[in-house]
Design a protein around this nucleic acid. Sequence first.
DNA 1: TTGTACGCGTTATCAG
DNA 2: CTGATAACGCGTACAA
Lengths: 337, 337
Amino acid sequence: MLRGEIMNTIQDVAHEAGVSVATVSRVINNNDNVSTNTKNKVLKAINKLEYTPNLLGRNLRKKRTYKVLVLVPTLSNEFYSEIVRGVEDVASKDNYYVMVCSTHSNKETEKAYLNMFYNQLIDGIIFTAPEMSGEEMMDIANKYPVIQCSEYIRDSEVSWVSINNYQASYDAIKYLIDIGHKDIAIIGSENGFVSSIKRQQGYMKALQHNNIKINNDYIIQTNYEYEDGINGCIKLMNLEKPPTAIFCGSDAIAVGVIRQLTKQGIQVGEEISVIGFDDTNFAAYYNPPITTISQPRYEMGKIAMELLLRKINNIKCKNEYIILDHKLTIRESTITE
Amino acid sequence: MLRGEIMNTIQDVAHEAGVSVATVSRVINNNDNVSTNTKNKVLKAINKLEYTPNLLGRNLRKKRTYKVLVLVPTLSNEFYSEIVRGVEDVASKDNYYVMVCSTHSNKETEKAYLNMFYNQLIDGIIFTAPEMSGEEMMDIANKYPVIQCSEYIRDSEVSWVSINNYQASYDAIKYLIDIGHKDIAIIGSENGFVSSIKRQQGYMKALQHNNIKINNDYIIQTNYEYEDGINGCIKLMNLEKPPTAIFCGSDAIAVGVIRQLTKQGIQVGEEISVIGFDDTNFAAYYNPPITTISQPRYEMGKIAMELLLRKINNIKCKNEYIILDHKLTIRESTITE
DNA sequence: TTGTACGCGTTATCAG
DNA sequence: CTGATAACGCGTACAA
């Protein structure tokens, strides 16, 4: 390795400036008990040697890494990238580095990242779609700073920030009813996340409150990908009485649904309504643009990081359960009155 | 901090096993000069205390961090997430952690991440869309292990892995000509990346070789986002003689173009052809599905990490410039014969 | 085969 | 206001 030779240490600076390493350290860390004179000498030496502190040494000493991990199920979903932006903006103010890693929705992979706690490589984790059980989550949270963001585990007493998925779903269905629909289907997930369950509850309640009978054929449990939308759509349209509106648990599902409907020659936004979830960037640019539930992703990330910082500074600080506002964004995939 | 109290160190293990820390270290690192008997004692102690090595200490000692950085312009483009998957798969074999960070295409942000070299927080960087100059890149590469992946800087003698962007573009245009087009436009980027320039060269050469005059009105330089596709499309369709085919520098541009054409009531795939670039996952699910150039993203990531490992182990190893195969994937956004 | 002792680069404590 | 020195947790040359 060449690196060792070219990096100057605090000792080199001390030697160059003709002071002790302690003094150099004081200057670096802005401990004010140092005279302007020596301070200048040190600064000059730092400049001359192009010195930057070795954070490995500092962190070892401080027993902090100034790094946090954001665990996402997949990097290829821009829903999460907006959350990360929020996290980064808060983190950078406190000189924290943010690492983003993907679990690929795999419990083992998720577990592997917990090793970074044991190895003391990170100070905290933000989970966006935890795979572990509530019990495991609480075990971790007792020992290490963790926050749940967006997705969270039911019955786990571990801080989270999310939206009211029940209400969001309710609002979407209510809107469909208002514009004249009665035969409304839902394509959701069977992943067991709170969000999925609550979205289904919102769907049911909205129908009930409007005296519409629940048709089990209209409820499809699958996953959140394009292909799931296609398959779900095929099933629904093969029914004796197909729905006139389809509420989807993700924008990706909505894309699959619309694609399939178009393929079958059905005009989305005229003959049938489709609603997505998340308002990922492409929703506005799909053909037709997709009506969807907007989540305050950036804000969620910011708050998650703020909560995490609090936990890092005091693992025993009390848990917070924060609900942010959602919004129904109406575009052309739903029939206009 | 609670953490300090609950983590056991190598000393605790040594004490528990009744041996020296050196022996424990030998067991951990599989240095074979230790008797089966003491080895077992140590292992038992490790187990009992649930000991895991503090990587901060180890890395400080070894002067390696076993971490590499992948710098992407944005996390919200799944083109990069596939590259990262390739990087991860190679890295994990050698016990390297992969950190993904976003520069937001900002030169200053990119520079800030270089501090991680100076602070000795990482062993190497893979750039996917470097913002710095060729000179700066070579400066860095002289001192630290870095690789360029996908995008690279012209005239910089720093290893890269990419595709032949000239040929890819040429193939796309040739295909359009073969299916009967002559009025072919290109919406590319003015970002100055090699890829953009070569794609434009491929476009021009393909036209020339087929005796089609180059029309400057048909060449639009912009960025790679949805909105750029929309604006470019508007310009083109306002021409006295609009093109019958549009070749786009990214799938996002193609999405914008198709969206705009549809809005204007023009049937894509029947009245006009559109080709994208990258074959991001949604290309196959857009309405209509988009003909595009597929890049071997996963493979690119794998090779980039292999090259990086070589550099980490020997900064002076010779540079490699690797070109992988691309493929034209034909879907419904181009007119079929 | 095992233990002692030092160093990695930093910060914190204690004297002066 | 400044300097010596002891930690932080680990790996390794050297000695035993």
